[in-house]
Design a protein around this nucleic acid. Structure first.
Lengths: 337, 337
DNA sequence: TCAGCTTGTTGAAGCGCTCTAATCATTGTG
DNA sequence: CACAATGATTAGAGCGCTTCAACAAGCTGA
């Protein structure tokens, strides 16, 4: 920086001002500084800059599971909004492990990002609220009733209800839910399923699993082995639905003829024609945009009150759902539009 | 830090030493410092630390396309090796766009990571070599003949040859290649395909595309519309193979009865039983480990000469390849094991 | 003409840490 | 018992930037 100042024939302070586009720099010195900086290939040291100014104009994005195709779309929305707001992004993955996630959060704090977005976070709320004392945090895809962190979610309760309603309209009554365990939004989806089953007087059938393909496959085997009648399965997310599909397949069931299947998230894999999974779209990119907006409000406009956005999802009907073949089920249909 | 020093009854310098585990600190003061730091919830400011020491013990990982399931596995290997070596990771995505990629590289440099891993990078070699003057770089999944950056690759040329050989052994001779364009390793795969086709005296049939599902779908339509006989298709990567599968499907072709299909990368989607794509495994996690090793060698052992690792891939045969049904093709079979 | 503005510029302090060299306390040696 | 050697500790400079108060110079209007 000294070199640039010397070359441009001005003081170091002016170089700093000129390079950040301050209004109180004459055009001539600005040009001189610019030229000198270019010639010297000078890039300001972000570390030093932050140390002096407490700002980095960077947001951190923590993705819980890189293998889950759900997250990239959220990241797309985040990326676009961050660009528009003049912020850069830094990402990290939790690799599905709470310790890793906590450590990743610490890394971001150590690097003094101006704000942090947690997607599909699984660490305890206490860890998040503790971190929120160091940096503004918005949590995406995990409902939290917090007064210090913002949350952006789709309405999982509603989404699950839409799924069950769709299946019931088709004539299903033996609908099994493959639960997502600690997965983001899983609890609300379960609740939506239960509420809707209850409203129609159908017995819920719940099998525990997680948001991975492997656990979905396992849970499906378990469900089939239980001996209970099943005409449709509603998996906690697409990934686990894919596992269910595998198990159904190898057990000789044809989807949707024998059993209907629904996922959640509308990931790219669900859209593959070969899969054609009926699922729920969360409008992921929109979630990402809202997250950045929330962060910018906090950082630039000093908002301190937490906001909680919930946006309505939509059902995407594809080829894995159909009316049940079993006339007994159809006969007992209790609901019709 | 002053607060910690005061509370522990020692100097600031000693706090610094104690917290970094220096050997020349007495056990008693170390304990006192630790306790004081814990009580105060003190976390050293990485920015200041770097400013003073020029080190961050962080590596950056740039992922070209978050939507491509190829990358997460590489990241897994990188993550594990980085943990073992005592480094933390920071990630970023290029969102398939050269400008974004260049900007992401700059962000990492601004944040003064100690080393940088580029996976599936697409920017020009000049940009990479320029960046390599600021930070050690290893490029994964992109062959580069550089004297300044390390590269870690699978042998795409060999992998492609294995694919073609497999198809020829099954009796195919009309093998169409859906090229991956600028995608990582695409050129080598094309070359391997051409070499093997040439060796057997079969006419190559190449359709340009990219490493995305959409472009694969388009290319397949184009290939079918060309009127040329096709008994097997070899896509540049799994993602584009998925697109091909879609197009084949909707055009009424049954895979593998009518047309065999092979991908490349052995991504998780290819392994789905519903897809069961024959493909090539690159041993991605191993690639990631080697990348970290290379970085550590540079950072800690001062290596300055570039290394170029190439590891052999393996063919994964699943359900999308079979002998061609057309007896004419089979009759002309020129190769047999 | 000159007090009072602007507008542009600068010196110096300070951000929170590391690191070198110097200091202090303790032990071992001839 | 003086003195070297060893181990533990500390003061202070400095990393590369921002920022604030101060200042110089040119301009305004009474």
């Amino acid at each position: 920086m000294d070199d640039v100042a010397r070359r441009a024939g001005v003081s170091r302070a002016l170089v700093s001002l000129a390079l950040r586009g301050s209004a109180k720099v004459s055009d001539s010195s600005r040009a001189a500084v610019r030229r000198a900086a270019d010639e010297l290939g000078y890039r300001p040291n972000l570390m030093a800059r932050h140390l002096a100014s407490k700002q980095t104009r960077t947001f951190g994005l923590l993705i819980n599971d890189l293998h889950n195709p759900y997250f990239p779309s959220v990241a797309d929305g985040i990326k676009r909004a961050a660009d528009a707001g003049g912020y850069r992004m830094l990402m990290n993955s939790a690799f599905l492990n709470d310790d890793d996630e906590a450590r990743a959060i610490e890394t971001f704090i150590d690097y003094r990002v101006d704000g942090l977005i947690l997607t599909g976070s699984q660490v305890s709320a206490a860890v998040i609220e503790q971190a929120a004392r160091s940096v503004p945090i918005v949590v995406v895809s995990r409902p939290m009733d917090s007064t210090v962190v913002d949350t952006i979610n789709n309405d999982d309760f509603l989404g699950a209800q839409m799924v069950v309603e769709h299946l019931i309209e088709l004539g299903h009554r033996h609908i099994c839910h493959i639960d997502g365990g600690r997965g983001a939004g899983s609890a609300q989806r379960l609740a939506g399923y239960q509420a809707m089953m209850h409203r129609h007087g159908f017995a819920p059938h719940i099998v525990p699993a997680a948001f991975t393909e492997a656990s979905g496959a396992l849970a499906a085997q378990e469900a089939l082995a239980s001996g209970r009648t099943i005409s449709a399965m509603f998996a906690g997310n697409d990934l686990s639905a894919l596992g269910v599909l595998d198990s159904l397949d190898s057990a000789g069931y044809v989807v949707p003829d024998d059993i209907s299947l629904v996922g959640y998230d509308n990931t790219s894999v669900a859209a593959l024609r070969h899969i054609g999974l009926t699922t729920v779209d969360q409008h992921r990119e929109r979630l990402g945009e809202l997250a950045i907006d929330a962060l910018i409000e906090r950082v630039e406009h000093g908002r301190t009150q937490a906001v909680h956005h919930v946006i309505a999802p939509s059902l995407v009907v594809r080829g894995t759902t159909a009316a049940p073949r079993d006339p007994e089920s159809r006969g007992q249909r209790k609901f019709s539009k």
